[in-house]
């Protein structure tokens, strides 16, 4: 399991990264933490001729409170996502997702930008970002784009990034006081990819849910927004009745893969169980 040969170049600026990428005629991959790229190359699932190390580009670093959003640099390591107080305060679904992402040593090195750009459908952060209605800051030779999370995750390992573009940061809208959050997953072992996972947030006004946002992961080719389940919650108190309606609505929202080892029906069943548990335990940031 040794990597095939490639050329390694370190970019000191985004402009340099784009140039190195275009220079390779597209046969290049950006390297941030490397915790997806390196094992997939060791497995010889990909063999780009060039790896461009973008880990030292200043724009990709830092967690910063801005006007309306929390800006989380793409190079923010999972361990920092887990520990950062600004993230805990303003992007709590990421803090709650982080302990489920692999294991401590992986979290020391893996980056949130790398994780989102990979768009693994079984991964936690994409669903959390989707649930928080975050925007992804993307920079390319043509300039900066802000892409809503809902428009970013397209298909299996496929995102809205066009070749050469770099995901530079995640912008999480600052939540209002009292917003409820919930995150959980069902996994065989601690740190394993989830059999199914749920991220959810909702605001309460006058005792009823407004702006419910419910996403699931490990239920299809990409993290999935459960719009019918959201609708079931909207405008009603968060009660066993509304939760049951949301659970039932998942049949409309999800079209899980049907694998002989893991039938679609079973995955839907687990998704319902988990959604019920997550919605029941929703809580605001303390």
């Amino acid at each position: 399991m040794k990597l095939p040969s490639f050329e390694y170049l370190r970019a000191r600026s985004l402009a340099e990264a784009w140039a190195l990428h275009s220079d390779a005629g597209g046969d290049a991959v950006y390297l941030s933490g490397g915790h997806s790229v390196v094992p997939s190359m060791a497995l010889r699932l990909q063999a780009p001729s060039r790896l461009i190390d973008i880990s030292q580009i200043a724009e990709l670093h830092g967690v910063e409170l801005q006007d309306q959003t929390l800006r989380i640099g793409a190079m923010t390591r999972h361990a920092e996502v887990l520990a950062n107080p600004l993230i805990a305060r303003h992007a709590p679904l990421l803090s709650r997702a982080a302990p489920h992402v692999a294991h401590p040593a992986i979290r020391n090195r893996g980056t949130i930008g790398g994780n989102l750009a990979l768009a693994d459908p079984a991964s936690e952060f994409p669903a959390a970002v989707l649930a928080m209605r975050a925007e992804l800051e993307v920079m390319g030779p043509e300039g900066q784009r802000m892409i809503a999370a809902d428009d970013f995750f397209l298909d299996l390992y496929e995102t809205a990034l066009i070749p050469g573009e770099v995901l530079t940061a995640i912008h999480v809208p600052l939540p209002p006081e009292g917003r409820l959050f919930g995150f959980d997953e069902i996994a065989r072992r601690r740190g394993d990819y989830a059999m199914v996972g749920v991220a959810a947030q909702a605001d309460m006004s006058d005792g009823v849910v407004s702006d419910a946002s419910v996403t699931l992961f490990s239920v299809g080719v990409a993290p999935t927004r459960a719009t019918a389940a959201q609708d079931a919650l909207e405008g009603a108190p968060l009660s066993s009745d509304s939760i049951a309606r949301a659970q039932a609505a998942l049949a409309t929202d999800l079209d899980p893969p049907d694998d002989p080892g893991f039938p679609a029906e079973r995955r839907l069943q687990l998704a319902r169980v988990l959604l019920g548990r997550v919605l029941t335990r929703m809580e605001a940031v303390q």
Partner: peptide, 11 residues
């Protein structure tokens, strides 16, 4: 001469 080169050739 190395494991990596042997893997390259095996491919």
């Amino acid at each position: 001469k190395s494991r990596a080169e042997a893997e390259d050739a095996a491919d």
